[in-house]
Amino acid sequence: MSFDNHIATLKYAFPKTIPILAGFMFLGISYGIYMNSLGFGPAYAILMSIFIFAGSMEFVAGSLLLGPFSPLSAFFLTLMINARHLFYGIAMLDKFKGSGRKKPYLIYGMCDESFVINSTTDVPSYINKGWFMFYVTFLNQIYWVGGTTLGSLFSSAISFNTDGLEFVMVALFVVIFLDQWMKERYHVSSVIGITASVLCLVLFGPDNFIIPAMILILLALSSIKKILEKREVIS
């Protein structure tokens, strides 16, 4: 791909990531400040943002570092908190095909937000899909690591009232859901996703509902496979 093509792809990818820029700068700075408040130097926050690159898990990891040394429980806690990535992988199996050497990075950097953009964007034919997904993932990681760096280095200097800015992530997910809703012919899967999650949230509480919700979604979608195929909802 030529230099001009890279610029064109970057120009197409950047606007899609602007909400993430806002959200990750804010959350990243918060994470830097949080780690600083726990007594960890900037190197911890920055390296963890680069290598873990999973927002909520990084906050949890910060508190794990202050507790008793227990790698096994840290491992299983990580698997549970990040289990939703398994669904992202299954959904992206086909989309990542043919992305060549970029594929390991696309998988490594697949946070919630990169998954959401990469799975919903219909890239026009003049843009290379693999490179588009690469730039989305890479930009998002730059925002996150950049925010973390700023937060851990300049935590005392930030003074304007940012209360509520974290809502930008909620807004992003709501908009993605609405976009999907407006474009789909049948709302079965969307309705299953919301219903199963709300049900499990009520039953299991905010800290434990994701895995039961995932299992319930899997069961529900599997049980209606035959019906959906008969009605030709899926090709």
């Binding site: 669904f87 992202y88 993605i176 859901f177 199963a196 999650s197 919700a213």
Partner: peptide
């Protein structure tokens, strides 16, 4: 679509 619902 179900995952987007879960994320919301």
């Amino acid at each position: 679509p179900a995952v987007f619902g879960l994320l919301v």
